[in-house]
Design a protein around this nucleic acid. Structure first.
Length: 469
RNA sequence: GACCCCAUCGUCUAGCCUGGUCCAGGACGUCACCCUUUCAAGGUGAAAACACGGGUUCAAAUCCCGUUGGGGUCGCCA
């Protein structure tokens, strides 16, 4: 039987990092087995679901490179089918109408809490005669859970997990207004969509036991379950807004490459020996649910950074030029002309070696895309003291005389000048760097000069002289 | 509170299922040194963990029990 999985987010916010990993694991597992990966938007909560969130989720998945198969299923559009199933269970005596009001249920829970009893619906309408129904209350439909025995799940990640059935209360399938709840919808859809493997967050593990009863009541085959551990924040608690939990779009804005995020997320909770750098093709080949760990993992930006750095260095210069220009123009910089573009392309190899994300890369790239006069940061300005300028002034004529302008000739010329003045190369190279880039940190200065071109370099050096004492 | 899950360096993990090769390996981070025109990169090296307590066994990070700690779930949310 072919594998069919699904990623089923609710469109109540952006695609957060935990969801992204769930999607990744589903995607990887499916691709590994050559199955079908479907996307289902769980929008049965009409009040909280938004189109913006749906769009954000779709965009996020696309950016991450986690494409889905077939049409996106919008769960709410299947509400009729869900209600049909609820009524079938009602007709078969496997479900019943409950006339409790929300207030009554709240009171029930509070009482249970106060008395230290388990907080569950007590089944007060389970065997009550419908003739006792109060007027003016739209009943909900609840499923009859078994009272004896226990329910066992053979979870592909968690192993065998068993829960006593008396822990399961008669949950609501259909609300008073006739709309289905998540517990019903998810089961009906998973069945109708032919889902063979339900791979989702650990927080759904306890739900699985209740959902299992719906499958059983309908006589449907039970899919395989794999509940993967949650991602925690630095404090060890479930990642949430208060940790500044970010959507994938935020990671994108922060300048992370999708392949870096994929590799990072993969290694968070899954391992393959000592392998750390695992590209997507390799991941598809290796991925298996059995190697997913059972404990939660904390999100660590430092490690993401190091992976990002790696993938940045692997990335093609053309791609990075595009990404950098995109960022620069978005930040309000004028669109670079062809000469600036050529410099950027030529200098990208040196630039990307030092960047940890696209934000920093774009910032550093201004060295090649910016126009004169260059702006100096504080350190660079301090470095360009009287002596430094003097030295640059003495170097300039020698540079001007160079007939051939490339890294080798520039370096030879500069070294000769340093030797002539009997100073260390650094004492000349740093002022040069400051004058040409406005920074004290940059790619190799001779590389920078070669990329910038003779004319531009001399002009920038001259700018420093002109700036006065 | 009830139920369920988890527990190896600061962090992610390998090893655990199939006890001995583990005075516990890798990666990120940290520190030191080397290289060096800056920063990166690179090279070399260092510090750093089997939560605790009982068992079982000739032998336990590995199996069992308990304790502690952490987490998740208990909605007419998903």
């Amino acid at each position: 039987m072919s594998v069919v999985t699904r990623f089923a987010p609710s469109p109540t916010g952006f695609l957060h990092i935990g969801g992204a990993r769930t999607a990744l694991f589903n995607w990887l597992f499916t691709r590994h087995h050559g199955g079908t990966f479907s996307l289902r938007i769980e929008d049965t909560d009409r009040a909280r679901s938004t189109d913006e969130a749906t769009t954000a989720i779709l965009d996020g998945l696309q950016w991450l490179g986690l494409g889905w198969d077939g049409e996106v299923v919008h769960q709410f559009s299947r509400a009729g089918r869900h209600a049909e199933v609820a009524h079938q269970l009602l007709a078969e005596g496997k479900a019943y109408r409950c006339y409790c009001t929300p207030d009554e249920l709240t009171a029930m829970r509070e009482a249970a809490r106060a008395e230290g009893r388990p907080i569950r619906y007590d089944g007060r309408w389970r065997d009550r005669d419908p003739s006792e129904a109060p007027a003016g209350v739209d009943p909900v439909i609840r499923i009859k859970m078994p009272h004896d025995g226990d329910t066992t799940i053979q979870d592909l990640v968690q192993g065998e997990v068993r829960v006593p059935n008396d822990q399961l209360d008669d949950m609501i399938l259909l609300r008073g207004d006739g709309t289905p709840t998540y517990m019903l919808s998810v089961v009906v859809d998973d069945h109708d969509m032919g889902i063979t493997h339900v791979i989702r967050g650990d927080d759904h593990l306890t739900n699985a036991f209740r959902q299992l009863q719906v499958f059983a009541a309908m006589g449907w085959p039970i899919p395989e379950f794999a509940h993967i551990p949650l991602i925690h924040g630095p404090d060890g608690a479930k990642l949430s807004k208060r940790h500044g939990a970010l959507g994938v779009d935020a990671y994108r804005n922060l300048g992370y490459l999708p392949e870096a995020l994929r590799n990072y997320l993969l290694r968070l909770g899954w391992g393959h020996g000592d392998d750390e750098i695992i590209d997507t093709d390799q991941a598809v080949q290796w991925f298996d649910l059995g190697a997913v760990g059972k404990s939660a993992a904390r999100f660590d930006f430092a490690k993401l950074d190091s992976l990002n750095k790696h993938y940045l260095q692997q990335a093609h210069d053309e791609r990075l030029v595009d990404l950098v220009v995109e960022r620069l123009t978005a930040a309000g910089d004028p669109a670079p002309d062809s000469a600036a573009l050529a410099r950027l392309q030529a200098g990208m190899a040196g630039l990307k070696q030092r960047a940890i994300n696209l934000v920093g890369l774009a910032e550093a790239a201004r060295l090649y895309t910016g126009t004169r006069p260059v702006e100096f940061d504080e350190k660079a300005a301090n470095l360009l003291d009287q002596t430094a300028r003097q030295r640059l002034a003495e170097l300039a004529p020698a540079l001007k005389k160079l007939m051939s302008w490339n890294e080798e000739t520039i370096e030879a010329c500069t070294r000769a000048q340093a030797e002539f003045e009997n100073i260390k190369l650094g004492q000349l190279a740093q002022p040069l760097r400051a004058a040409l880039t406005g920074r004290t940190v940059s790619p190799g200065i001779f590389e920078v000069m070669a990329v910038l071109g003779q004319e531009e370099c001399l002009a920038r050096i001259n700018d420093v002289q002109a700036a006065g004492p």
